[in-house]
Simulated scan of single mutants.
Amino acid sequence: MYPAERQAAIIAAAHEDDGALSVTALSRDLGVTAETIRRDLAVLERQGAIVRTHGGARLTPGMPFELSLAKRQAAEADEKRRIAVRAVEEIPTDGVLLLDSGSLALVTASVFPDLSIIVVTNNLPAIPVLAERANISVMALPGRVRPISQGAVDEWTRHRLSTLNVDLVLLGANGLTADAVTTTIPDEAEVKRAMLLSAKRRVLTITASKIGISSFCHVADTDELDMIITDDRIRSEMRDSLHAAGPDIIVV
């Protein structure tokens, strides 16, 4: 088992056990030494996913549990498809689009029209989907792949993004309030922030179940967005609050 796979298994184990982790139990269950587990925990702590404790670790306080990409793909499928279909209407002709990682972005890739555009993405599962379109040029961002989202998120990713100037970003998030766009770990927040800063237009695609939630790490103020596309489960008062912050609100 590679380190990234082992670290994903550690986070999965925490989700199954109320956020608590034991070095001894992980060593036994994963068939590696306690020292190997401690190194994995150190990596996950630097990513902001866990906090070390005596004899183990626990999930970072206030950070919502994240499901695997496969499980998120199955959840809210109808809402995600409606959001995705509306989102592709914003794609510029003969332009450059930046596509975020995550399950909603992957659904969006699946409904892309075959336009003559460049798509830059850190979303590894979306790359072969987009590459099937003859007229789309796909550029993959470099970097360490986060197993749970299958997106590239590290300093290599951020550095490449800092050199880009794109027409539109389709961004995802784990939480949205009238004040802020948020996500779960610092590395991912920094990559999303770099995406936002590289784009002329900034569109957030998000299911209504994540609206009103504040996740662990700040990505952007809500008034930095040009548009939010969500589904019709959004509460009317939250829609009004988001609109008052500045972005256009599209409900599908």
Rank of each mutant, 00 (worst) to 15 (best):
V138H: 07
R146T: 02
A194W: 01
V219E: 04
V120E: 00
R86L: 15
A42P: 03
G212D: 03
A9F: 02
A109W: 11
Q7W: 04
R235N: 12
G172Q: 06
E224F: 05
H54D: 12
F65K: 13
E224V: 08
F216P: 00
E5D: 13
A245F: 06
H218L: 15
A134V: 08
I118Y: 04
L197K: 05
I118D: 14
E132Y: 11
A140D: 03
L204H: 10
R38E: 12
R144V: 12
S68V: 04
T183I: 01
S116R: 14
V107W: 02
A20C: 08
A4S: 15
D179M: 10
I229K: 07
P61R: 07
A173S: 15
A77N: 07
E5L: 12
A42D: 13
P113E: 12
D40Y: 04
Q150P: 00
N165Q: 07
A34G: 14
E90P: 07
P247D: 03
E76C: 13
I213T: 08
R82F: 04
R6F: 00
A244Q: 09
I185P: 00
I37W: 01
A199W: 00
S101G: 09
S215T: 01
H15Y: 11
R52D: 01
S101W: 04
V251W: 06
L161N: 01
A180M: 05
L204T: 06
D18G: 12
D179W: 02
S137K: 14
I234W: 00
D231Q: 09
V129G: 00
V85F: 06
L44F: 03
R58M: 15
H15S: 09
A152Q: 01
I127W: 11
V251N: 07
S68M: 06
L242G: 02
G56P: 04
N174E: 05
A178P: 01
A25G: 08
L115V: 06
W156D: 15
R39Q: 09
V203Q: 05
V88W: 04
A87R: 06
D78G: 13
S27Y: 04
L41K: 11
D17Q: 11
T182M: 02
L104S: 12
L41I: 09
E16M: 11
R235S: 15
T36K: 15
D18P: 03
L99N: 05
A131T: 09
K210P: 05
L97D: 10
R193G: 07
S214D: 09
T53H: 14
P64D: 09
P125D: 08
R235E: 14
R28Q: 14
L30T: 04
I228F: 05
V252A: 06
P61L: 10
K200R: 14
R6T: 01
K192E: 00
H218Q: 08
L98T: 01
A42W: 05
I50C: 10
P125T: 09
R52M: 11
D100Y: 07
Q150C: 03
D40A: 09
S236I: 12
Q73P: 05
Q7P: 00
G62P: 05
